[in-house]
């Protein structure tokens, strides 16, 4: 179920677009709904977003499966999105990702046993001068080293 609060937020986005173009808000709607649902989407939520924005459900499903940032399986409380593209790679992202996998005993694409984190390898996040880097929540963490990473992980609750 989409909460009233979330609906309000979605409706705020709807006001940005011309009348009858409420489907422009679908990406944000899915983001809002996903955040509210612990980081992933379900078929029911997609249906509800479709109903709320008066869109064909399959069109919402298309959007929900096209963009990288939507999850269709439960995820950890925090998602660590680690860039492994060229600039980060040249600065050792692969090694750091392995380090992370070992430390958390979790493979990329999976959720840690305690459900606290998921690790994802992602393409360029547009912070190449700060590589290696990762994103957790809204936050970018740049110029990472093993010890910096330890620190960040220790602070995740």
């Amino acid at each position: 179920m989409i909460s009233d609060q979330a609906k309000k937020e979605i409706d705020f986005w709807v006001t940005k677009y011309p009348e009858g173009r409420q489907s422009s808000a679908v990406m944000q709607a899915l983001t809002i709904v996903q955040n509210e649902n612990g980081g992933s989407l379900t078929g029911e939520l997609i249906q509800e977003v479709a109903d709320h924005l008066q869109m064909p459900t399959i069109s919402v499903q298309e959007v929900a499966t096209f963009y990288e940032n939507y999850n269709h399986k439960p995820v950890g409380k925090h998602i660590i999105r680690f860039c492994h593209n060229i600039s980060c790679m040249l600065n050792g992202s692969d090694e750091l990702i392995s380090y992370l996998e070992e430390k958390l005993e979790v493979k990329t694409g999976e959720v840690s046993k305690d459900g606290l984190v998921s690790v994802k390898k992602v393409e360029c996040l547009g912070a190449c001068v700060g590589g290696p880097m990762c994103q957790i929540g809204d936050q970018y963490h740049e110029h990472l080293t093993p010890s910096k990473l330890d620190n960040i992980l220790d602070n995740l609750k």
Binding site: M55, F66, Y67, N69
Partner: peptide, 24 residues
Amino acid sequence: HLGAGAYICGEETALLESLEGKKG
């Protein structure tokens, strides 16, 4: 407007599609 993770949306017409609430 906020994207949701798709490099192709940098291509200007994909960006427009995305802005219209569709796949990019």
